[in-house]
Design a binder for these strands. Structure first.
Length: 256
DNA sequence: AAGAACACCAACCGCCACCTT
DNA sequence: GAAGGTGGCGGTTGGTGTTCT
């Protein structure tokens, strides 16, 4: 097909992003929205590949990102979703607000994989390592045993002291809801867009301050430049849900 | 204190799906 | 329907920080 490279190889900078480059990219996206990544480097005055810009934005600069290790609940959710979806990190990430596919992938490869192996569970099949996987056995059964192992054996794991914003009860309720939500699972299998379900957001029903208007203004983006190195929770954005973010993005596009 | 080994994660690469012409 | 362009995804790599010897 004679595919073109995504960018001119000559003169394109690689490697870690500088604060100056981050600033340029943020300024550009906040002004023009996310569109035509190929054109972004040129328009934003960056000597970067468009792909690189998109990756930098989605994995690091987006204001709705969480920081820090995955909580135990998030980890269990990843395990459960992985058992059903396999290495479809973007699908898994779509169910964890504020987390990126890259982040989840990295966490899986560095933490969860080892943890499962240590527990005698095959991280690929989610079946016990010492037993042959039974073909007739539904894979959806495995994650629950895996989760059980985790809660029994690793309840005091390294992540337990990290930024778990919800209580254990809330966490387990959320996980139960997700694991038992057939429509959700069906949606995941069917590759449909993420469900917009109240159970996926921590916004309490009737919460008065949960609309997009309570966010800092996007017209004046200087706040973002100052806060990009902090976690979302530092700014009280952890209540953002998919709807609001989509709205935000669409709004940007319409402005652009 | 210094070097080796290990762990972590940001970023790159190549492929694929989707959209437009 | 074919070709070309673009964005997105998943696998992998390389740099850096941390721990171990």
């Amino acid at each position: 097909m004679g595919r073109q490279p995504c960018c001119d190889k000559l003169g394109v900078k690689k490697g870690p992003w500088t604060a100056e480059e981050d600033k340029k990219l943020i300024n550009f996206i906040l002004t023009n929205g996310q569109c035509c990544w190929r054109a972004v480097p040129k328009l934003a005055g960056l000597r970067r590949c468009g792909k690189s810009c998109r990756l930098r934005w989605t994995n690091y600069l987006r204001p709705d990102l969480k920081r820090g290790l995955l909580s135990e609940t998030e980890e269990q959710l990843v395990i459960d979703l992985h058992a059903r979806l396999g290495n479809r990190w973007s699908k898994i990430a779509a169910r964890l607000p504020g987390r990126t596919d890259n982040e989840i992938k990295n966490h899986w490869n560095t933490h969860i994989k080892k943890k499962l192996i240590k527990m005698g569970i095959d991280p690929v099949t989610h079946q016990p390592l010492n037993k042959e996987a039974k073909p007739e056995e539904s894979s959806s059964h495995a994650p629950h045993s895996a989760d059980k192992h985790i809660s029994e054996n690793d309840g005091t794991g390294a992540n337990s002291s990290e930024d778990n914003s919800s209580t254990p009860t809330e966490d387990s309720d959320l996980l139960d809801t997700i694991c038992n939500d057939e429509s959700l699972l069906n949606t995941l299998w069917m590759d449909e867009p993420p469900l917009v379900d109240a159970s996926w957001t921590s916004i309490p029903a009737g919460e008065p301050n949960c609309n997009i208007s309570s966010l800092p203004s996007w017209d004046n983006c200087s706040w973002l430049l100052d806060c990009q190195d902090f976690g979302v929770k530092d700014f009280g954005f952890d209540y953002l849900n998919d709807i609001e973010l989509n709205t935000l993005e669409m709004g940007d596009k319409t402005v652009a």
